[in-house]
Design a protein around this nucleic acid. Structure first.
Length: 417
RNA sequence: GGCGCGUUGCCCGAGUGGCCAAUGGGAGUGGACUGUAAAUCCAUCGGCUUUGCCUACGCAGGUUCGAAUCCUGCACGCGCCA
């Protein structure tokens, strides 16, 4: 089975340019170079980007040569979104995000060998381009009529769109041409929201007399219940461990719905087709065992955060969600689990509400009080009734540890020195 | 440039002088049921030193005992005319 068959089996190809032509191209003798781009719109990528990162990894493992582009130029412009104009980020901020994201994607690919990956930045060829060059060399090949027909642009004609964002597509299109001429890149992929930009690039490369080049897009990861993928209690799920702890990352996958897990396995797992089919069957037959969720959570936490962090996240999860009594856990085990989940360390006799706020379990004191009022706040698995009372000495296990819980599955700890 | 209309809480969207921290839906949060799942039902959903106070209905001023609601100016968007 070749890589294209694998990607199709996994449902990773939603749309593509002529698939037979691409297949022939991949079957040819020459090593194919591909690129995928990430715009630095924040300090870290999130789980939604993981599909792209991992697809790049798959392609490299299949022998293709990856160019990972982090958009130092496009990130300063902003891809138009349907709702409203973006606020421009200062260039030095974007530059900082570029290097962070470059470091973030690097471990997912092999930087050595015959098909070593290369990190590229479109600021390198876009930054120095003059306005005249841009308008003559690039702009001449784009039809405003066609750009206006795009759904995003149509949506924005009502709300308003700046020339800056309108022009975004030209930069991305030009990236493909530059990577073709500089690196011989003949394949681009991205998320399905990039289809318009990507095909514009393919067309542009042809108009410049280069190519032919190919492209495909991966589907948007969805959830069966219609809510947005990659959101969890109070925020996104980031790849950066300082923004989303390995424990929280692991918990995110553990909590995947049964109806979604089969699709996630295909998108995200590097297990064999047989193993994936076996896990799908396990979910069907014994959903309560969550075998597929556990397998995927462990695999991805290891891949993203490493073996050691993954092992700790798993240990913490089984300690905190085990059926036994908290006091059955040895002090070091409990302390480590709480540290994974997030702790507030204090000697102050803070109220339960304050502890919930400090630990991040609640955003404000009001929210913490509300949680108590609604019966959703627990200390050591015992429901709290008084939000203002500080913890008593006997609530500290081993004299120094207390387990805070909000709802069924959000846990934090209190440690006093 | 002129005239008209619009700008409401995370999103959509009611509200035309006091009964408005503001109807309804979605998202979020909690409870019940479960399997750290889904569906369903119920509750909740600005903040705080929480029987009260503060901040909020594009921005800035004004009228009024009292304004999201009226007036003026400004910004932005939409439409028509030039």
């Amino acid at each position: 089975m070749n890589i294209l068959d694998d990607l199709q089996w996994r449902g990773l190809i939603q749309e593509s340019t002529d698939i037979d032509a691409l297949r022939k191209h991949l079957d040819g003798d020459d090593r194919v170079t591909f690129y995928v781009g990430f715009d630095p719109t924040g300090a870290s990528l999130h789980v939604g980007h993981l599909v792209q990162v991992l697809t790049a990894r798959r392609l490299q493992r299949a022998g293709l040569r990856p160019l990972l582009l982090v958009g130092g130029a496009t990130g300063q412009i902003g891809d138009p979104k349907e709702t409203s104009e973006r606020v421009l980020n200062p260039p030095e901020v974007v530059a900082g995000w570029v290097s962070r994201i470059q470091e973030q994607v690097r471990p997912f690919v092999d930087m050595a060998g015959d098909n070593a990956a290369t990190l590229v930045n479109n600021l390198d060829w876009t930054g120095a381009m003059s306005a005249v060059d841009f308008l003559r060399d690039v702009g001449k090949h784009f039809s405003v009529n066609r750009m206006l027909a795009r759904d995003v642009v149509k949506a924005r004609l009502e709300a308003g769109i700046s020339f800056t964002e309108f022009s975004y597509q030209l930069l991305q299109g030009n990236d493909y041409y530059e990577l073709f001429t500089r690196h011989g890149c003949t394949l681009q992929f991205g998320g399905s929201d990039q289809w318009g930009n990507i095909t514009a690039g393919v067309d542009y490369v042809r108009r410049r007399g280069a190519g032919p080049v190919h492209a495909f897009v991966t589907p948007l990861v969805t959830k069966a219940d219609g809510t947005k993928f990659g959101k969890t209690e109070g925020g996104g799920v980031w790849l950066d461990p300082t923004l989303t702890s390995p424990y929280a990352f692991y918990q995110f996958w553990i909590n995947a719905a049964d109806r979604d897990i089969a699709g996630y396995l295909r998108y995200f797992s590097f297990r064999s087709h047989e193993e994936i089919l076996r896990l799908e069957k396990a979910t069907e037959e014994r959903p309560a065992a969550r075998e597929a969720q556990r397998a995927l959570a462990a695999e991805l936490t290891t891949l993203v955060h490493g073996e050691a962090e993954s092992a700790q996240a798993i240990a913490a999860s089984s300690a905190l969600f085990g059926r036994g009594e908290l006091t059955d856990l040895a002090e070091p085990t409990l302390a480590a689990a709480l540290r994974e989940a997030g702790v507030v360390e204090t000697a102050e006799p803070l109220s339960v509400a304050a502890l919930f706020k400090e630990s991040g379990l609640a955003q404000s004191l009001s929210e913490a009080r509300r949680a108590v009022k609604e019966g959703g706040a627990y200390v050591n698995n015992v429901r709290v009734t008084d939000a203002e009372a500080p913890l008593s000495d006997d609530q500290f296990l081993y004299g120094r540890l207390a387990v805070l819980r909000r709802g069924k599955k959000t846990i934090a700890g209190v440690i006093r020195p």
